[in-house]
Simulated scan of single mutants.
Amino acid sequence: MKAIVLEKAGGPENLHLAEVQKPNIKKNEVLVAVKAISLNPADVKPKYNDEMLGMMYGKERPVILGWDIAGTVSEVGAEVSDFKLGDKVFGMVNFPGVGKAYAEFVAAPEAHLAKMPDHTSFEEAAATTLAALTALQILSGKINKGDKVLIQAGSGGVGHFAIQIAKSFGAYVITTASAKNKDFVLSIGADEAIDYRTQNFEDVLSDIDFVLDTQGGKVFTNSVKVVKENGHVFTTTGPDFPKEAQDIAKANKVNLSSMLVKSDSDDMNTLKGMLESGAIKPNIYKTFAFEAMADAHREVEKGRTVGKVIVSV
């Protein structure tokens, strides 16, 4: 089969098309004939650093990157009960771990997939994976109807799902975005949009119940300043919180948390239901051909993506 491989750490130019062996599946896995792949910063950043590649992918080379797929089931393991040949499926495969998604075929645990909703394209399904799971797993069970929720970087992959999910939970949603993306974030459910280039959100907001942060650093620290007592700031950037943020949180009795998303079929089925009901809709920013994976990486690296970058196989 064809796959996009990375022989050694480096830029997008190090990604190249190669013939590799089709994976064998375990009893609890299905083999997915991949039709679409979704890209994330978590795909793009590690490729530059040998140490990070080793931590995430081990010593095996070449590396096949990626986790987010949609496609059809072409082979079924002996212990698989939820899927059959020909089923259209989507999911985030083996995260954290090695998903090997940049390939024509991917071996995926049954417990990481869901059936695609009717009337959803492979590209839309692939988009509704890591970023959507991150937003869902952070927000689910943590916000109540009427809560004031701040979503940082609302036009991004995680952010645009978080706006929609928080709104579906009945929250009052505020987000940060550039002026050119204001209409977009308002159209998907944000009640207020703050232009981060002309306004400091920490100067105009207060009494926030919950913040979902994807930026870290100063944005995370300033987020703590606007949260009410017993409120919560949740970040995707890891548990090493800035000292200033910790001091402010302690003084104001604000809770700080971080989370690493995990593959989960129950959550994938929740997203399936949200797609079916219209509670969420992925925004596909650009689509690239499989052979143009390097260009897709370059697009993500610009940091200006509105929604998701997709690769069609």
Rank of each mutant, 00 (worst) to 15 (best):
V93Y: 14
D82M: 13
K145Q: 09
Q137N: 03
L186K: 15
M55L: 12
A125Y: 00
K145M: 12
H112S: 11
P41W: 02
V93R: 08
Q21H: 11
F90Y: 09
Y102F: 07
E110A: 09
S223N: 06
D240P: 11
V80R: 01
D240C: 01
F169V: 04
I4W: 06
M56E: 10
A127G: 02
A171W: 00
D240I: 10
G58E: 12
G238R: 08
A33G: 14
D240Q: 14
N222F: 00
N252V: 04
D207V: 13
A9S: 15
A135I: 09
K148W: 00
K45D: 13
D295Y: 10
L39H: 03
S257Q: 08
H232R: 14
Y102N: 06
E276R: 09
M56A: 13
D183V: 08
V149S: 07
F290Q: 07
M52F: 13
L6C: 10
N222I: 08
G157D: 03
E229V: 13
A36F: 09
A179G: 02
K145L: 02
L130T: 11
R304V: 12
E60G: 11
V224R: 04
E244N: 06
T175F: 03
S81H: 11
E291R: 07
K180Q: 11
T235L: 10
V311T: 07
I174H: 03
V5K: 09
A193Q: 02
H119Y: 15
F90A: 01
L256A: 10
P117Y: 09
A126V: 05
T175C: 01
P46N: 11
V93E: 06
K100G: 14
N255C: 12
P109N: 12
I69N: 04
N94P: 06
V30Q: 04
E29N: 14
V5S: 02
V73I: 03
N200K: 15
S277F: 08
G216V: 00
V30D: 04
G58W: 03
T134E: 08
I25M: 08
R298H: 11
V219E: 15
Q152W: 12
A33E: 15
N144M: 01
E29R: 11
V5I: 10
V224A: 10
A190R: 09
D203H: 07
T198D: 00
I64A: 07
T287K: 03
V158T: 13
F95S: 05
Q164P: 11
F184N: 06
D213F: 09
V34M: 00
